[in-house]
Simulated scan of single mutants.
Amino acid sequence: MYNENRCHSGKMNSRWGGRFGGHHHGKFARHAEGMFGHGIRRVPVNIEETEDSYIIHLFAPALVKEYLKVVTKDDVLTITYIPKEHLASASRFSRREYSNGAFERAFALNGKVLSEIISAKYADGILKITLPKNPETNIPAKDIAVN
């Protein structure tokens, strides 16, 4: 559940950033904007583990809920946001330090989640996705005595 897949949408590429992404500054950010029509947006997530579920808290304020898409396919959870007015609104600003533009995040579920009962809710700028644990594949830790 902790593995994050790289995005393969054509808008992001796995060679940029570290395991959980990096900061995009300076020449690279301007180069990426030229290549893709807009900058690469990396939204942060926290992953909480409870006794019976994993909970992804994705921080993305001021989104239009209708443009959020959460999908599971081939044991991968993908979160996508593509606003319709993204490209048109980008040219209205003389300075832009934040964006509510498109993004995509993908996470390998590794068979540890019951995909058919995943739930998602967007409120107060946080997308909260609850992933119930699969009891057959989530075996509790076992202490091993060292002799």
Rank of each mutant, 00 (worst) to 15 (best):
D74K: 14
E48G: 05
R95N: 15
S89H: 06
A106S: 10
I47M: 15
H38I: 07
V45L: 09
I126A: 00
P61K: 00
Y67N: 14
N138M: 08
F107D: 09
D143S: 06
F59N: 10
G111Q: 01
D143P: 04
M1C: 06
L114G: 01
E66Q: 15
F36D: 06
W16E: 08
A106K: 02
V64S: 11
T80D: 09
T137K: 13
V113E: 10
R95H: 14
A32G: 02
A123W: 02
H57K: 15
R96I: 06
T72D: 07
I40K: 07
A108G: 13
C7L: 08
L63R: 04
G26P: 03
P132R: 00
R6Q: 11
L68E: 03
Y122W: 00
I139L: 08
S115M: 09
G37S: 04
G39Y: 10
S14D: 14
A108K: 09
V76T: 14
E85Y: 09
L87S: 13
L131Y: 13
I82E: 15
F93H: 14
A102Q: 11
T50P: 00
R105Y: 05
E48F: 08
G125K: 01
G111P: 00
R30N: 08
K142A: 15
S119V: 01
G26C: 04
S99T: 15
V70Q: 11
R19C: 00
A60S: 14
S9V: 01
E48K: 07
K121P: 00
S14V: 06
G111V: 00
V113Y: 02
L109Y: 06
L63I: 11
Y81P: 01
S14L: 02
K112S: 08
N100S: 09
E33N: 13
A62M: 09
N46F: 13
L127H: 00
Y98T: 13
E4F: 12
K121Q: 05
S99I: 03
M1A: 06
S14K: 10
S99F: 02
P83F: 03
R15C: 12
